[in-house]
């Protein structure tokens, strides 16, 4: 029974999927494994996962999917409500809002993935080192983290973008800097607790180098926690990017992002709410979906919810 296997492996946190090297699982087909993984993830997180995957597909194929040009003004029909031709209506330049939301997804996804990968690599590595080495290194990183976390996230991002200039690359850099301390802290504490396990003492007693102990015995166990944190980073990044673009210091028009679309629609919010509602809804849906996935993964990773096969 594939369902039991998930529970049988107490270390399985990553993605809710059975580890491919778990032998009892290996006999199950790929489809069974997928079903088993989703079942242990739960209903809501699975819905979230589907939404996020759909959005990735939309972002990748945006130019093909978008029914109209997202940037070229078409002044025939401005500020129109939803219709058969323009499902989400048109904006003040007569551009199709649906097309702009679809293309805007690209920016959100790029920022989301870039910031997540950036903070995972930098914050994750620093967190591993801080938790494992401890001492002075840990104290210095800890205080830097505290300083960064003391500044409200959006202010920090504004300050960095103001220094570096606007544009998608600088937005990513600014948001990554803001997210690193969060990732660092989570990974550090996971590393600390894994380091206490007899398994790690055993690896040191064997005579393994610190690098081997860290990468072979600690990192795989921290991975699950880091993945959960990644989902929240992803959601934060999308939210902050929208915020920066809304404030006009993120990605610049006419390049559509959900944030600058809402910003542009502000003027007509009373008469023509469609323009703001659809990009706003896109933000809400994607952030909610990602958070659902994160919650599902966190429940899987929570030691209290897992039976330990002893």
């Amino acid at each position: 029974m594939a369902r039991v296997d998930i529970q049988a492996d107490p270390t399985n946190l990553a993605g809710g999927m059975p580890l491919p090297d778990s032998p009892t699982v290996a006999v199950a087909t790929g489809r069974q494994r997928l079903v088993a993984g989703l079942r242990s993830l739960g209903v809501l997180p699975t819905i979230g996962l589907v939404v996020v995957l759909l959005l990735v597909v939309v972002a990748v194929f945006a130019p093909l999917i978008a029914p109209f040009d997202a940037t070229a003004p078409a002044s025939i029909d401005t500020l129109a409500g939803p219709s058969g031709a323009h499902w989400f209506g048109t904006d003040m330049y007569g551009r199709d809002v649906l097309s702009r939301v679809i293309v805007g997804a690209q920016v959100s996804m790029v920022v989301g993935f870039a910031v997540t990968i950036g903070s995972l690599v930098i914050g994750g590595l620093l967190g591993l080192v801080a938790g494992f080495v401890g001492g002075l290194v840990d104290r210095i990183l800890g205080q830097l983290t505290d300083v960064l976390l003391a500044v409200p996230g959006i202010l920090l991002a504004i300050a960095i973008v103001a220094m570096l200039g606007s544009g998608i690359r600088n937005v990513c850099i600014a948001l990554t800097i803001g997210q690193i301390p969060l990732m660092l802290r989570v990974v550090r504490s996971a590393t600390l607790s894994i380091s206490q396990r007899p398994m790690v003492r055993a690896a040191r007693a064997i005579g393994a180098r610190p690098s081997r102990v860290l990468l072979r015995h600690i990192a795989p166990y921290v991975w699950g926690t880091a993945v959960v944190q990644c989902t929240f980073t992803f959601a934060h990044a999308i939210l902050y990017e929208a915020g920066l673009s809304f404030l006009g210091i993120g990605v610049q028009p006419p390049e559509p992002t959900w944030g600058n679309m809402v910003s542009e629609a502000r003027a007509f919010i009373g008469s023509q709410p469609w323009n703001a509602i659809f990009p706003g809804l896109a933000i809400v849906v994607v952030v909610l979906a990602i958070n659902l996935v994160g919650d599902g993964l966190r429940d899987l990773a929570d030691p209290e919810s897992r039976g330990r096969g002893r």
């Binding site: 492996d9 107490p10 270390t11 007899p198 398994m199 003492r201």
Partner: peptide, 11 residues
């Protein structure tokens, strides 16, 4: 070690 479960890397 004492506890053969926690002293072995389960992965």
């Amino acid at each position: 070690f004492q506890d053969p479960y926690t002293a072995l890397n389960a992965r």
